[in-house]
Amino acid sequence: MRFIPPLLSTALSVVLAAGLAPMAHGQTDTYPDRPITVVVAYPPGGSTDLTGRAVADQLSKKLGVPVVVENVGGAGGAIGAQKVSRATPDGYTVLLGANNEIAINRLISPAVKYSYKDFTPIGLVASQPMVLVASIHSGIRTVDQFISTVKAKPGKYIYGSSGVGTALHLSAEMAKQQAGLFMSHIPYRGVGPLTTDLYGGTVDFGVYVLSSGLSHIRGGKMVALGITEKKRSAVAPDIAPLADHPALSNMDIGVWFALMAPPNLPEAITARLRKALAESLQAPEFRKKLEDSGSTVAPPNVEMGKFLADETVKYQKIVTFANIKE
């Protein structure tokens, strides 16, 4: 899901800032009167892209103008996110981002120069749990077995995720911290290579976004130990939360998606976008598409300032504990 290359500083430096000139009053009165671009900071095909296209489709219906998705991949989402943080605040360029590019990247890499405060939050869109799995070769079938086995032989066991500093990596480190475990981490460039190694028993455990791991679990190719959010998922109610185990009672971390605009967006345009998003979240076809993909649609009117601040504090504690940096 996330890989920040050594040349991140150079890559980010080429993202040019658009002018931040204040808008004339008449421009806010007529908004929107031309197409809007939703930047997705990953290539097509992933969960962020799917969510972004579903949001774009609904916003187009609510706002009455074309809303197009622009995929700006690279640097674990940082290139696309920075592009939006520096765009003209006119409501015609917004970001459909996940927690990695909005809140986590800045905590991991000094090359990332923006933070979640460099956006105008429009609203939370959806969230999805991750799932901790065991290789069928490990012989581990329950959370209790997982904790007792890893504790008995510190350092012997290995888990994989889709990259250093991803939400998946942080979720496993959160479990390690809470249960007092010592496992080694192998970062992969995506879930494909991780899946191959889990199938073969090269790694003992792995973390997936639930929608990515479910087919492997249902096919009996790996064992679901538990989901990372406290509430059960409607798409997989048979998989218990890790938090049901006393040693992991504070486990509550997921992948979330939010709509963000450049800083200093005029209040009238911010209100227009927030209203359109709130209406989109209630559209039956939108809810079905996201729920079928494993996501839970966010409740309306989440207080985004507090949400983002709380999430960042959570991630910072994990990053500090695990000494994650690039």
Rank of each mutant, 00 (worst) to 15 (best):
L259D: 10
M260V: 02
P262I: 08
N264Q: 00
N264E: 01
L265Q: 02
P266Y: 08
E267A: 15
E267V: 10
A268D: 10
A268M: 03
A268R: 11
A268V: 05
I269W: 05
I269Q: 07
I269F: 01
I269L: 03
T270S: 11
T270K: 01
A271I: 03
R272W: 04
R272D: 07
L273Q: 00
L273I: 06
R274V: 08
K275F: 07
A276R: 02
A276Y: 04
A276L: 05
L277S: 13
L277Q: 11
L277K: 03
L277G: 15
L277Y: 01
L277W: 03
L277I: 10
A278S: 13
A278M: 07
A278Y: 10
E279Q: 09
E279N: 04
E279T: 13
S280F: 06
S280I: 03
L281W: 05
L281S: 00
L281C: 04
L281Y: 00
Q282H: 09
Q282C: 01
A283C: 02
A283T: 12
P284W: 13
E285Q: 14
E285C: 11
E285G: 05
F286Y: 10
F286V: 00
F286M: 00
F286K: 09
K289V: 13
L290H: 04
E291T: 07
E291H: 07
D292V: 03
D292N: 12
D292K: 11
D292H: 10
D292C: 08
D292Q: 07
S293C: 09
S293K: 09
S293H: 15
S293N: 15
S293W: 12
G294T: 02
G294S: 04
S295Q: 12
T296H: 08
T296Q: 12
T296R: 11
T296S: 12
V297A: 06
V297D: 00
V297P: 03
V297K: 02
A298Q: 04
A298E: 07
P300F: 10
P300Q: 02
P300E: 01
N301M: 12
N301S: 13
N301Q: 15
V302Y: 08
V302K: 05
E303H: 09
E303C: 00
M304G: 06
G305L: 01
G305Q: 11
G305A: 05
G305N: 10
G305H: 12
K306W: 10
K306M: 12
F307S: 00
L308N: 00
L308R: 00
L308P: 06
L308Q: 05
L308H: 03
A309Q: 15
A309L: 14
A309G: 14
A309R: 13
A309M: 13
